[in-house]
């Protein structure tokens, strides 16, 4: 009987162990992916500053400068804004102790569809940046003008050396 009780106790313990909750194992499973932008930006023409006088750098062709041209391609309509900014500082230059007055402009010069002819009129400006809603799939060419005048209105001569400035072009998802 005692043996039977012992066996019964063993089974009871075994049964209890089956009924008791186990320890839970957890694992993080990663999901990867990438988004191919439907908007790309290319430089069609690099810009060049002309130096018509000692205190001015300009991209105007009349002053031996060259306006940069940026091409924006989008394969998806109404998905991106193109935001183009003319420079407001030099990326590299000799040491400049005085202030520089920056002016510039961005304009659509060519499109791949007549339906894009309203892009310029539909654009908005914020400071040096102009934003174009890309409502048509296709290609748009933007031309940027830039001018820097040194001396804070006193027309001081730029120090001799090499000057570089950047136009910033972005595709920003709407």
């Amino acid at each position: 009987m005692k043996k039977l009780m012992t066996i019964g106790l063993i089974f009871a313990l075994a049964g209890c162990s089956l009924l008791m909750p186990k320890k839970v194992a957890a694992e993080n499973i990663g999901i990867t992916g990438s988004v191919q932008s439907r908007c790309t930006i290319n430089t069609d023409t690099p810009g060049v500053y002309g130096n018509p006088n000692a205190y001015t750098l300009t991209t105007a062709p009349a002053s031996a400068g060259q306006k940069p041209i940026v091409r924006v391609d989008t394969t998806l309509a109404n998905a991106y804004n193109a935001q183009i900014s003319y420079p407001t500082s030099f990326a590299s230059s000799p040491s400049l102790g005085d202030t520089i007055a920056w002016t510039g402009a961005v304009a659509v010069v060519q499109t791949s569809s007549s339906d894009m002819s309203g892009y310029q009129a539909a654009s908005t400006t914020t400071g040096a940046a102009r934003t174009y809603p890309l409502s048509i799939a296709g290609t748009t060419w933007f031309e940027i003008e830039s001018q820097a005048t040194y001396g804070g209105g006193q027309n001081k001569a730029f120090p001799g050396g090499s000057y570089t400035a950047h136009v910033v072009a972005e595709c920003i998802a709407q």
């Binding site: 659509v108 010069v109 060519q110 499109t111 791949s112 007549s114 002819s117 290609t139």
Partner: peptide
């Protein structure tokens, strides 16, 4: 064909 009616005139390039 490009219909420029009611649109701004500008330069177009197509392939």
């Amino acid at each position: 064909t490009e219909d420029w009616s009611g649109k701004h005139g500008m330069r177009i390039q197509k392939v």
